[in-house]
């Protein structure tokens, strides 16, 4: 089963019929609400780190007053969406791949087929919808947490003038940057879900417990790498 075959069938299943709504809601809650704790913790530290790192780089040539600009551009446009995608991708993607692989090796997918239920429609489509709608929300949430952390670090820890920080931020970051971040989120979410579903769906009964581990591992690595590369491509298209 090749990746492109899988993508074609998944797209058909995703856009031709309404996915089972109970499944969709369950996976949306799993992917979205389940990731919030982890995401808050990690993006908070990433925001603090971004401010400190930017300060350390700018203070070398006396530009520490541009910290607001640096945190705005570096954070909102690049770091927070892609970090949300990599972190949540690792968590959500691993869960999706492990659960689908587990269903494959315990022959639950065949059981669905025998009952005349299309597994693409019943298993894959709701997961694709859920993750591609949850990820943009997580990206927007990451923007808020990350900016708050950068502000805290810049103003209360490094002694940057708060008015100056906010003025720089407002001057450089507009609604279109937030919208671009959310758009990136949709793309990352769909990518994470399709990669994870592919690796999970592809495992076979003979692989056993090892197959679940391999599927999880591949889902995490491939989705992280693809998100980072896609982020570069989207940034080059959106901002150049």
């Amino acid at each position: 089963m090749s990746f492109f075959w899988f993508v074609r069938h998944a797209l058909v299943a995703q856009f031709t019929r309404v996915p089972p709504l109970d499944q969709f809601v369950r996976h949306m809650v799993d992917a979205g609400v389940g990731s919030i704790g982890l995401l808050t913790l990690l993006i908070f530290f990433a925001g603090l780190s971004l401010a400190v790192q930017g300060y350390a780089a700018f203070v070398r040539f006396g530009g520490q007053e541009f910290l607001g600009l640096f945190c705005g551009i570096g954070g909102i446009r690049e770091l927070y969406p892609v970090m949300a995608a990599v972190i949540c991708g690792a968590r959500i993607g691993a869960n999706l791949a492990a659960s689908l692989a587990n269903m494959q090796i315990s022959e639950q997918v065949e059981a669905l087929e025998v009952m005349g239920i299309d597994p693409m429609n019943y298993l894959v489509a709701p997961r694709l919808w859920a993750v591609s709608l949850a990820m943009p929300l997580l990206c927007a949430y990451a923007d808020v947490v990350g900016l708050a952390a950068s502000y805290l670090a810049a103003v209360h820890q490094l002694g940057v003038n708060p008015g100056n920080f906010m003025a720089q931020l407002r001057g450089i970051v507009g609604w279109e940057d937030l919208a671009a971040g959310v758009f990136k989120g949709v793309a990352f979410g769909w990518l994470v879900a399709i990669v994870a579903c592919y690796h999970g769906y592809r495992s076979a009964k003979r692989d056993g417990a090892e197959g679940v581990g391999i599927a999880t591992n591949r889902a995490i690595v491939h989705s992280a790498v693809l998100c980072i590369v896609l982020n570069m491509i989207l940034s080059a298209i959106l901002y150049v």
């Binding site: 982890l38 913790l41 990690l42 530290f45 990433a46 780190s49 972190i87 690792a90 968590r91 691993a94 869960n95 791949a97 492990a98 659960s99 692989a101 587990n102 090796i105 315990s106 056993g208 417990a209 090892e210 197959g211 679940v212 581990g213 599927a215 999880t216 591992n217 995490i220």
Partner: peptide, 22 residues
């Protein structure tokens, strides 16, 4: 069993990313 293997692999990545960022 098999589900536990996936969970260990996943938790390893999550815990390490937390540690690295902090």
């Amino acid at each position: 069993g098999a589900a536990g293997v996936g969970k260990s692999a996943n938790n390893t990545v999550v815990y390490t990313i937390i540690l690295i960022l902090v």
